[in-house]
Lab assay of single mutants.
Amino acid sequence: WVPTKREEKYGVAFYNYDARGADELSLQIGDTVHILETYEGWYRGYTLRKKSKKGIFPASYIHLKE
């Protein structure tokens, strides 16, 4: 896992994603996520609506905010 280059990196989910394991994070369309790390097509972070739950999710489900 590699920390993100920018201190504040955010994105928005444009697909729903159902977590398949305890380390994964479920997403709903429109969720804003804070991205902490990246690795081979995956991000690690949390949604702003539930900051206490961190997990991994596919990068392809996220539109990055500039």
Rank of each mutant, 00 (worst) to 15 (best):
V33P: 00
D31R: 03
Y43G: 01
W42C: 06
L25I: 14
A13N: 00
A13S: 05
R20P: 04
T4Y: 08
V12P: 02
Y10M: 07
D18F: 09
E8T: 09
S60L: 08
I29R: 10
Y46A: 01
N16M: 06
R44T: 03
E24Y: 06
W42P: 01
E8G: 11
G55E: 00
S26G: 04
T47F: 04
L64W: 05
T38Q: 12
G41I: 05
R44M: 12
P58V: 06
W1H: 08
D23Q: 09
K50R: 13
K54F: 12
K51R: 09
G41L: 06
V12H: 04
E24L: 03
P3A: 07
G55Q: 04
K51A: 12
S52H: 13
Y46R: 04
Y61T: 10
Y46K: 02
E66T: 13
L36M: 10
T38W: 11
H63E: 12
I29H: 04
I35V: 05
G41D: 08
R20A: 08
T47I: 15
V33R: 02
H63R: 14
E37N: 04
G21T: 14
Y15W: 14
E66L: 10
S60P: 05
Q28I: 12
E40R: 10
L64R: 05
W1K: 08
F57D: 02
I62R: 00
A19I: 01
I29E: 07
R44G: 06
L48D: 09
T4D: 07
Y61L: 12
Y43L: 03
S26M: 03
K53F: 08
Y46P: 01
T47D: 07
R49V: 09
L64V: 09
T47C: 12
G41V: 05
A13D: 02
Y46L: 02
Y15A: 15
D18G: 04
Y43S: 02
K51C: 15
Y39S: 13
G45H: 02
R20N: 10
V33H: 00
E37C: 10
K50L: 13
Y43D: 01
K65N: 10
K53E: 11
E40F: 07
S52M: 10
G30M: 07
L27W: 03
P58D: 01
Q28K: 14
D18C: 12
E24T: 03
G55N: 03
I35W: 00
D31N: 03
K54R: 12
R6W: 11
E7G: 15
E8D: 10
G21S: 14
G21L: 06
P3L: 05
R44L: 14
P58N: 02
T32Y: 15
G21R: 08
Y46N: 05
I62C: 07
F14T: 14
Y15L: 15
K53L: 11
E66F: 10
V33M: 04
D31F: 12
R20L: 09
P3K: 05
R49C: 14
L25M: 04
K54E: 08
S60H: 13
K51H: 09
G41F: 04
Y39F: 12
R49L: 08
R6V: 12
L25N: 01
E37K: 02
F14P: 00
A59F: 03
K54D: 05
A22T: 10
G30W: 07
S60R: 13
L27I: 06
E24K: 04
I35A: 01
L48F: 12
H63A: 11
Y17H: 02
A13Q: 02
Q28D: 05
A59H: 05
I62Q: 00
K51M: 09
P3Q: 06
L27G: 02
W42H: 01
S26I: 04
H34W: 13
D31E: 09
N16L: 05
F57S: 00
L64I: 13
L64G: 02
T4L: 10
I35P: 01
K9P: 03
R20K: 13
H34R: 15
G41T: 05
Y61R: 04
K51F: 08
E40P: 11
K65P: 07
K50M: 13
A22D: 13
V2K: 13
Q28V: 13
S52K: 10
F57Q: 04
T38A: 12
A22C: 09
D31M: 07
T47W: 02
D31S: 06
V12C: 11
I62P: 00
G11A: 01
W42F: 04
R6G: 13
A19C: 05
E66N: 12
T47Q: 07
K5T: 13
A22I: 11
H34D: 00
I29N: 03
Y15I: 15
V33S: 00
K53S: 07
G45N: 02
S26E: 04
K9A: 11
F14A: 14
Y10S: 04
I29S: 06
R44K: 10
L25D: 03
Y15S: 14
V12Q: 05
F14N: 08
A19W: 01
E40K: 12
L27C: 06
S52N: 13
V33A: 00
G45T: 01
K50Y: 13
H34L: 14
G41H: 06
I62D: 03
S52D: 15
L36A: 02
E37H: 06
E8K: 09
R49Y: 12
D23T: 06
G11V: 06
A22N: 11
Y17W: 08
D23V: 07
K50T: 11
G30Q: 00
F57N: 06
E37G: 07
N16R: 12
E7C: 14
K5A: 12
I56L: 12
W1A: 08
S60G: 09
R49Q: 14
Y61G: 06
A22W: 08
K53C: 09
K54H: 10
Y61A: 14
L64K: 00
L27K: 02
L48I: 11
T32H: 14
E66V: 12
Y43K: 00
K53T: 07
Y10E: 05
Y10C: 13
Y39V: 07
D31C: 06
W42K: 01
I56F: 12
R20W: 05
K53Q: 13
R6H: 12
G55H: 06
D18L: 10
S60Y: 07
T32K: 12
T47R: 15
I29Q: 07
L48E: 12
T32A: 11
R6I: 12
H34P: 00
V2I: 13
E66P: 13
Y39H: 08
L48K: 04
E66R: 12
E8H: 15
D18E: 14
R44I: 07
K5E: 11
I35M: 09
K65D: 11
D23I: 06
E40Q: 11
G45P: 01
W1D: 07
D18I: 13
K54G: 04
E66Q: 13
L36R: 01
I62V: 08
Q28Y: 08
Y39L: 11
L64F: 09
K65E: 11
T4E: 08
S60C: 14
Y39M: 14
E66H: 13
N16H: 09
F14M: 15
L48W: 08
N16K: 11
P58H: 05
V12D: 01
S60I: 10
V2E: 09
G30P: 00
T4C: 15
